[in-house]
Simulated assay, not measured.
Amino acid sequence: MTRTVTAVNPTVRQGWRTGRWVALALFVIVAIATVGTYLTAPRPGEPMDPQSTSPDGVRALVTLLRDRGVEVVEARSVADVEGAARDDTLIVFAETFRLTGDEQLRRLADLPGDRLLVEPVSRVREALAPDLRSAGASSFAPAPDCDLREANRAGDAQLGLADSYRSANPDLPLTSCYDGALVRYRDAGRTITVVGTSGFMTNAGLLKQGDAALAMNLVGSAPRVVWFAPREREGAAGSATLTDLIPDQVTWIVLQLSLVVALLAIWQGRRMGPLVAETLPVVIRASETVEGRGRLYRSRRARDRAAEALRTATLARLLPRLGLAAGAQRPAVIQAVAQRTGADPGPVGHTLYGPAPATDTELVTIAHQLDDIERQVAHS
């Protein structure tokens, strides 16, 4: 038997080895790119969520605090806050519009440690900072102009439109910064800090002048921070479904009415005859209509008409929420809004029924103030 031996060219062997190394390098590059994409992918979430990398999340601030050695505990419920609160803890109330139960607010008010309330709604402010009252909303100067060390170290900050606060007790030693947008006082051995905006703490707001320093100074003042941003509404009544709350008699009435409506539809359908095809009119987007009207107002410098349109639309949405009729008098509307938001009637009346703006900046300020009033009424 003759055995044939085939010799492999050294050039072929060298090319095979080179090809394997190239394939291995490509595999490593793809693996690194995949892992990098996963680690740097955006993580959307709720506003003020410590895990969210969206513009209104606070993952950047929480990461900076942890790099600085601050222990940040993420709390999603009142029970989590109760389990993490201690005397040396700063509790940050980042999202307060989901706190609706009186029992939950009483439990939070009894917890030890300092408090930092970020843009609190009226209900939460009255429970956790009872010595403060709302002083309305406006655009504030960037200078702190106060004796608060955290604010002075940060210097000028771009807070923009924010709620302001004042003391309800003339004898209360209240430290007020940024024209009342940031206030602090001592009560029952704890430090209570209230800030009227959350924008400077977000991932997008940290890039503005002084905002990152102010956020770090306020939140990083304690070695241990409990970040409370509930994902679900706290204090909702029970776990019963909608069908469990409907009486049996109502179910039968609904079935009977459905049968009546079906019979009426059949009867009317036979009388009206067959459907007739008809050419539909041109559909225009609502955004294009609003933009076109805004350009017309701006081209004619019709700031008075623009402000009147904004105020009329705001009142049309506010009156049903306040339980007022469409023809309610101005004093009644102003008093109802002031009671609901906790603001002074004077600024509220000026915003809702004040004179026409003289500049575009004043028109933009009125729009922001109307939006803030509507938001406070909706969340109160």
Rank of each mutant, 00 (worst) to 15 (best):
V118C: 13
L108A: 13
Q104R: 11
A135Y: 10
L117K: 12
L128K: 12
S122F: 05
E119M: 09
A129T: 09
R123W: 01
R115W: 02
G136K: 12
P130V: 00
A129C: 08
L111H: 06
A129Q: 08
R107P: 07
V121L: 05
L128C: 10
E126Y: 08
S122N: 13
P120Q: 02
R106L: 07
L111P: 11
V121Q: 11
A127N: 04
L128R: 12
A135M: 12
A135H: 13
L128Q: 11
G113P: 05
D131K: 10
V121W: 04
L108Q: 14
A109C: 06
R133I: 09
A129M: 08
E119Q: 14
P112M: 03
G136V: 09
L116F: 02
R125H: 04
L128S: 12
D114L: 01
L132V: 08
L105V: 01
D114Y: 01
R115T: 05
R125F: 01
E126P: 03
P130K: 08
A109W: 03
D114N: 13
P112V: 01
A135P: 11
E119L: 08
A127D: 01
L108S: 14
V124G: 05
R133V: 10
L116M: 05
Q104D: 15
Q104P: 11
L105E: 03
A127I: 06
S122M: 08
S134D: 14
L128W: 03
R133K: 13
D131W: 07
E119T: 09
P112R: 03
P130N: 05
D114F: 00
V121M: 06
V118E: 14
L132Q: 12
D131T: 06
A135I: 06
D114V: 00
D114K: 04
A135V: 07
R115N: 09
L108D: 15
L111Y: 06
A135N: 15
P120G: 00
L128D: 10
L108Y: 14
L117H: 06
E126F: 05
R123S: 09
Q104F: 00
V124M: 08
R106A: 13
D110Y: 00
V124R: 11
L132T: 12
L117A: 11
R106P: 09
P112W: 02
L111T: 01
V118N: 14
L108H: 15
L117M: 10
P130E: 04
L128V: 02
S122I: 07
A135C: 10
Q104T: 09
Q104K: 12
L132P: 11
L128N: 13
R125W: 01
R125I: 00
P120D: 02
G136N: 13
V121S: 04
P130M: 06
Q104N: 14
R123F: 05
S134K: 07
A127W: 01
L116S: 02
P120A: 00
L128M: 10
